[in-house]
Simulated scan of single mutants.
Amino acid sequence: MLPRRSRLTRPGDYRAVMRRGEGPPRIRRRAGTELLVVHVAMPAPTLPTRPPRVGFVVSKAVGNSVVRHRVVRRLRALVAQRLALLPDGCDVVVRAQPPAAGASSAELAEALDHALGRTVLVTS
């Protein structure tokens, strides 16, 4: 489980990360694989820092409710293990693609590491 301070909870926060041009000045990046897409919004250097926050988007295209919740639980556990690697002040949205429903945890971990490496590590 992610700590409360590390979760995106408001719809406006999700929009600010996933759509360019909304919210305070930020550096936005996106990277993906066939299993998931990671959207990252890094704060401008002048903004105060806070712990990183993470949110998840899993649409009905991934599967029924049971499948979607299973995917979210697995992604949440994987992100919790990598939370310390995320820079302060960044917001991350992990969006699952339909093939994520049949992927193993190892495949999801590999896809997450690849996408985070292309977004977070490039901008820091």
Rank of each mutant, 00 (worst) to 15 (best):
R15G: 06
L112K: 08
V71A: 09
L116V: 10
R20M: 06
L8H: 06
L86P: 07
R4N: 05
G89D: 00
Q81C: 11
A41N: 02
E107K: 13
P43L: 05
V120R: 03
G117M: 04
Q81H: 15
G89N: 10
R53Q: 04
R73E: 01
A31H: 09
C90Q: 04
V62F: 07
E107C: 12
V92A: 00
R26I: 14
G55S: 08
L121C: 14
P48M: 11
A84K: 06
M42Q: 10
V57A: 13
C90V: 11
E34C: 10
D91N: 11
L78W: 06
V40N: 08
V71R: 04
V58C: 11
L85P: 01
R4K: 12
P48E: 12
H114A: 15
V71Q: 05
R118N: 08
A96S: 06
R10H: 14
T49E: 15
R82I: 08
R15T: 13
L86F: 01
S65P: 11
P87Y: 04
R4W: 05
A115F: 00
T9K: 11
T119M: 02
S59L: 09
A96C: 09
L116M: 11
R53Y: 02
A44E: 12
P11G: 12
T123I: 15
V92I: 07
F56Q: 09
P25R: 12
H114I: 12
S59H: 13
A41R: 00
V93Y: 06
P87C: 09
R10S: 13
V37E: 03
V54L: 00
L47T: 14
P24F: 05
R50E: 15
L8E: 07
R10F: 14
G117P: 02
R20A: 15
R28A: 09
V120Q: 05
T119Q: 02
P25H: 08
P11V: 08
V37I: 14
V79E: 05
D13W: 13
V93F: 00
A16D: 14
P87W: 07
S6N: 14
P24D: 07
L85F: 10
V57Q: 00
P43V: 12
R29F: 02
P45G: 03
L116Y: 03
S105I: 12
V57K: 06
A106P: 08
R5F: 01
L108R: 01
L116D: 05
V38C: 01
R4M: 01
T119D: 00
P98A: 03
S59M: 05
S104A: 07
P43W: 03
P45L: 01
A41K: 02
D88K: 14
V71G: 10
T9A: 09
L121W: 11
V66F: 04
Y14P: 00
R26N: 02
V72H: 15
S124P: 14
L47N: 11
A31T: 06
P52S: 11
M42W: 12
R95V: 15
F56W: 05
M42R: 13
L85I: 15
A106E: 13
T9M: 02
P51K: 10
E107P: 09
A77Y: 01
P98I: 06
V66S: 11
P48I: 13
A101D: 07
P3I: 01
T119Y: 01
V93R: 01
R74M: 04
A101I: 09
P98S: 03
L108F: 06
L35E: 01
V93N: 03
R53N: 03
S124N: 13
